[in-house]
């Protein structure tokens, strides 16, 4: 899992940017402008596109640690959910349902971010929620935090 995420995040927006990598970058943005999966540490040379991108995300608010901590609380409560691929697949499904037929790959980050927000709100409205340390969180929201936590190692 970790290796895949590293590979993905080293190519943030180019042709090699996979759907999953796109989701991951989206999640980190969604989870708070400043979150990026751990394990994607900037390369030593510090000059790549990834370095610039992750530096911007990590430096924005420092929310990365908060997301990881909440994600870990979710994984403590639901230890069977610790598979990043499965988590991302479920999130993918939730987002796709909000995109009105637009392919996920074709949607820009802003639209996908808005779709995830709609998905989260809809889950609250439908009662698709989980309890995490007493907090009532939507399932996709909790999975997003957990995905970041898993990939952070």
């Amino acid at each position: 899992m970790k290796a895949i995420s590293k590979t993905s995040h080293r190519e943030p927006a180019g042709s090699g940017y996979t759907r999953r990598a796109f989701l991951l970058s989206l999640l980190t943005g969604v989870a708070g402008a400043g979150v990026l999966v751990a394990g994607c540490a900037p390369p030593a040379d510090g000059g790549s596109a990834f370095d610039r991108w992750s530096g911007w995300l990590l430096g924005a608010t420092g929310n990365r640690d908060a997301v990881i901590r909440v994600g870990r609380l979710y994984l403590q409560a639901y230890p069977a959910q610790g598979n990043a691929d499965a988590l991302l697949k479920e999130i993918d499904r939730a987002i796709a349902a909000q995109l009105d037929g637009t392919a996920l790959e074709a949607a820009d980050r802003a639209r996908v971010g808005a779709a995830l927000e709609r998905a989260v709100r809809s889950e609250y409205a439908r009662g698709e929620v989980v309890m995490v340390a007493g907090w009532v969180l939507s399932v996709s929201e909790a999975r997003a935090y957990a995905a970041v936590a898993v990939l952070s190692g």
Partner: peptide, 14 residues
Amino acid sequence: ARIRTDVLKAARRF
């Protein structure tokens, strides 16, 4: 208290 702030930070986008 920290979990409260963590949730706030984590859910900021929402």
